[in-house]
């Protein structure tokens, strides 16, 4: 498929940035002594990144099948991803070692990075062009 390489590049780009940002913010909280926030944020960001990778990696499975199987595959994919995204929230609710708010914030790390990346490129670094 012609789409595989650019998509993988995109995933690598946003996944790396999301994890780097999460680790950077977590280090600040670690220095301030909020270990639970640090753990929650990294765990949320990790699941957010894997979810983003899963979104694209399973797409070709749907495209290759006939319509009915593709629909079932898409439904299964959504169910799997949502169950997967529920794991860090469950862990944060059950174990005080992970801060719930930080975990939830971590789950939005990839969309936040995508948004920040495009806005910064358009508005902040437009003078370079």
């Amino acid at each position: 498929m012609t789409t595989t390489a650019p998509v993988r590049e995109l995933q690598k780009n946003y996944g790396t940035k999301a994890m780097a940002l999460a680790i950077g913010i977590s280090l600040v909280f670690l220095i301030l002594g909020h270990k639970a926030v640090c753990r929650g944020l990294v765990m949320g960001a990790l699941f957010s990144t894997i979810n983003f990778v899963l979104m694209a990696q399973t797409l070709h499975l749907k495209i290759k099948h006939e319509r009915s199987r593709a629909s079932l595959s898409a439904l299964g994919n959504i169910l799997f991803r949502y169950t997967f995204m529920a794991i860090p929230i469950f862990l944060a609710i059950k174990f005080p070692r992970f801060d719930l708010v930080a975990t939830i914030a971590g789950l939005f790390m990839v969309p936040s990075v995508i948004l920040a990346d495009h806005i910064s490129r358009t508005f902040l670094f437009s003078w370079r062009k």
Binding site: T2, T3, A5, M55
Partner: peptide, 12 residues
Amino acid sequence: GDVFKSMLVGQA
């Protein structure tokens, strides 16, 4: 490729 990337980002 570009359309696919845009679709993915929009869906996220």
